[in-house]
Design a protein around this nucleic acid. Sequence first.
DNA 1: TGATCTCCATAAAACTTCATTATGTTTAAT
DNA 2: ATTAAACATAATGAAGTTTTATGGAGATCA
Lengths: 307, 307
Amino acid sequence: MFNPQWLRSFVVLAEELSFTRAAERLDLTQAAVSQHMRQLEEQLGQLVVRRPRQLELTPTGLAFLDYCKEVECADKRLQQRLNTNCEDCGEISLITPGSIGLVLYPLLLTLQSSNRGLIMRHRFAPDVEVLEAILQNRFELGVLTYRPDDSRIDASLFTEEPLELIVPAGETINGWDDLVRIGFIDHPDGHAMAGRLLSRLFPGNPGIRTVPHSGFSNQVGLQLEPVAMGLGFTILPRYARQAFKRQEAIRAVCCETPVIDKLWFVHRSEWALPSRVVSVMTYLREKIAGMEGGNTGIDAHPIREVT
Amino acid sequence: MFNPQWLRSFVVLAEELSFTRAAERLDLTQAAVSQHMRQLEEQLGQLVVRRPRQLELTPTGLAFLDYCKEVECADKRLQQRLNTNCEDCGEISLITPGSIGLVLYPLLLTLQSSNRGLIMRHRFAPDVEVLEAILQNRFELGVLTYRPDDSRIDASLFTEEPLELIVPAGETINGWDDLVRIGFIDHPDGHAMAGRLLSRLFPGNPGIRTVPHSGFSNQVGLQLEPVAMGLGFTILPRYARQAFKRQEAIRAVCCETPVIDKLWFVHRSEWALPSRVVSVMTYLREKIAGMEGGNTGIDAHPIREVT
DNA sequence: TGATCTCCATAAAACTTCATTATGTTTAAT
DNA sequence: ATTAAACATAATGAAGTTTTATGGAGATCA
């Protein structure tokens, strides 16, 4: 590696092809430039052929000039990457659970398409993996379904997502028996979510295990397909339902006192978030808040509780 | 840009995650490493979170580490490129006229395939362009059909290539009239070559302009196609003929005192050729010499001179 | 709990490197 | 032959770097 001042001098010298002019441009004396070249040439061999009034780069000089250009580029990239005050350029890395991710990812892409300096890196992952990725600095920002208890993590409330019982559009649910009749489409968090929501909807029910299973998918984008086809019901966070294309084929059933999960933005507490990330957080919060006010797709008439 | 010693210290620190151990590995005192980090952090912001017995890189630190790796790579590439003593690695750039190029290019590819460290860059070009490319350092080595008179150029004899009158295999040439009968396939140097060779073969002939033209191509690899198809004769250097695939379809006619062009290796005289280039020159000389001893494809019985 | 140890930061001194001034050499131009 | 232009080199003072010396904060262990 080389003294950066020497590189600068060499690059200017290669442009000017004159020690004197290069020195002027560099605000140095000609002697300084001359010594820089001597230093470089001691390490690299001859870089410049000195002919009276006509300098010329040797092949070594040309190779070294390419090297200088490479280093210059690396410098620019570093500056770009470290310019955390730029709101509309740089990389945004976000890792979220599936359900909310389905909603966020299109929003991010919209943001990116109106703001081509941003580069989105998004990953769907379960809670554990989100936390790990944030702790290991692999992602700047994460979304978690719980508030983590770790001093290295800062959490701020993002939004709330109610759990929903989602049934084929044609079905009416009057009681537990209807669920047993149409069957449960399971997913990785299916049992946990079902347990929490169904105990509120149907107090004293015999448990999700007693309901026939009519399907399973761990692909969050596909979980509502079987429901839309009338093959069963499922329990999902609202955002997972809202991201589904064929809304007309499904229907959400909700109780009066809903089961609501909180979603948290999480990031490393030790270092400040780049302002582009902060502005993306604001953007997502606004968009999500706007969605909640609108069509929630929820039954106007909640079902009666079954005794 | 940054003091290279600071970079080194940072890279080692990032590996060791300990100032003390890094200093040991760097053969410095711990105080020195500490100051290097202070210098870097003054310019870049915090790079390392100091926790008791547990250092950790900040995102800035990770970005800077990537930068260090980039610079390291650029360094390695430079070293590789400047290692002119390595005979079997690096780039060979060669620029040659078409005819000999047809023979050299396959030889170079053979060499490269048995020697994967070498990278061949070959270009076909007319003499003027060869000279220009060598003078401008765009190619290390060139082949010219004449010895250039320029103090910046070193020329060494490469090989000789006789001019040949090439006719369709079925034709017999007994005199000038036969040439007029079958017609001339022209190419960029066609008139010049024809003038020189035909005045020796058929002294006192009325000149190539009086012969009907039956074709023209400036693509040296294709010039013999029309001849092979019986459409005419042409005049080419021997190497152009030797590189032709369908040898059985053509025939070379030669006189007792052939017209022989010399081919010269040329390169810039100011700087020594990398040894890989020297070894390629040697390789090509040997291969070409070997070819000349073998099947030259020339008529055993030269035609009689026509008066 | 206090002594001890490890690890990093900082200050001052010793040392090294760097830029400048001054001067020499070479070459082209007058 | 003289002059001017352009680069190299030597010497010197300024700036930067490394080391030694020291201090403080947190772990470790009796």
